Amino acid sequence: MQIHVLASGSTGNATFIEMENTKLLVDAGISTRRIKQSLDAIGTKVEDIDGVLITHEHRDHVNGLTTLLKKYKIPAYARPDTWQSMYCRGVLPEECCKALPDSLSIGRIKIEPFSISHDAADPVGFRLYAGSSKVSVATDLGFVTPTVKEALSLSDVMVLESNHDVEMLKNGSYPWHLKKRIMSNRGHLANTDAGWTLARVDRKAHTHVFLAHLSQENNRPELAEDTVAEILTNQGCRLGQEVTLHLTYPEQISGLSEHK
């Protein structure tokens, strides 16, 4: 099993997941050139990608989709309303644009999307199963619903949003309407929300967590890590033994390879 967050943040998002020799991308919000270069750096060819899973239509999640689909003819899966709301839908090759059902299998991975709360047409997270392993992806969500909590439970690996520090956001330079949007139930998850989610979700004996979609304006990687770590430690979690935290970056690959 391999999980590599190729890019994460408001400038672009893409995550590579390989399970049981099936290779997927979750989102394609960076250029196809960067996707190819990042995959080359981890020893994978873009031609070998079996599918692209789209969480929602915002540009930082789909900006690389046009060239990727046109050049490599990779099937991409999104909710019908997401396709309809996507700015580039009219120029995408029709044969590559697949409707995302409530459950599907690509290669040896079973994929189950789940609804999340965000200001998009029909946004989703993903849980992916192969063999005895489970990976879950939940970014761009305003709050953690019972549906999301259940979807994250008993994951071997999570990619979970830890977007902002509330005080940095409140005291920062963003206009008030944007601050309200980010802090709303359809906005983005704060560091403290990520920490409490991890503390309360059912976990396996050891879980790897990528803290994702960090704001460059209203967060710092070390602050996100420290905030989440403090909550988990105060709730009796042994960091490094029960939960291992991994940071993600806009211009840098964060990766994990595990063999079961």
Rank of each mutant, 00 (worst) to 15 (best):
R186K: 11
H208C: 09
N191H: 14
G172Y: 01
S215K: 14
K149H: 09
D202L: 13
N219G: 07
E167K: 08
G172I: 04
A194K: 10
K149D: 09
L169H: 03
V124A: 05
P123R: 07
D156N: 14
E167R: 11
D156Q: 07
P123Y: 01
G125M: 01
E161L: 00
A130H: 02
A205W: 07
R220E: 15
W196P: 02
A138I: 09
Q216N: 15
E217V: 15
M168I: 04
T139E: 02
Y174I: 04
M168H: 09
K179S: 00
T192N: 08
P123Q: 06
G125Q: 00
E150G: 05
L214V: 06
Y129F: 12
Q216E: 15
A130D: 02
V144M: 10
A130G: 13
N218M: 11
E150M: 02
N218C: 15
V157M: 06
A212R: 07
H188E: 06
V137Y: 13
L152R: 03
K149I: 00
Y129W: 05
A212T: 08
V148S: 05
P175H: 03
S215L: 09
V144T: 07
G187L: 10
N163E: 13
G172Q: 06
N185F: 05
D165W: 13
R186Q: 11
D165A: 03
D156L: 11
H208A: 12
G195D: 12
F210M: 15
V157E: 05
E161H: 05
R181H: 12
N163Y: 11
N171L: 09
S153K: 03
L198C: 11
K134G: 08
S132R: 10
L128P: 06
L211P: 06
V159A: 04
E161V: 08
G125A: 02
A199E: 05
V201A: 12
L152N: 10
V135L: 04
N219W: 08
G187R: 09
Q216I: 05
K204Q: 10
R127C: 11
A151Q: 08
R203Y: 09
G142P: 01
M158N: 10
L211R: 06
H206I: 03
V135S: 07
T192F: 12
T139S: 01
K180C: 01
Q216D: 14
E217L: 15
H177K: 07
D156S: 10
R220M: 15
D156T: 08
I182A: 07
L160V: 04
V124I: 09
A199H: 06
D165I: 10
S162W: 02
R181W: 15
D193I: 07
A190V: 03
P175T: 01
S133A: 09
D156W: 07
R200W: 14
A199M: 03
L178G: 04
K149C: 10
F143L: 09
K204P: 12
V135T: 10
K179D: 02
E217C: 14
R186E: 12
A151E: 02
L152K: 04
D156G: 03
K179N: 03
H206F: 14
L189M: 13
T192I: 13
S162N: 06
L160G: 02
D140C: 14
F126R: 00
D193A: 14
W176N: 13
A212S: 15
D193N: 12
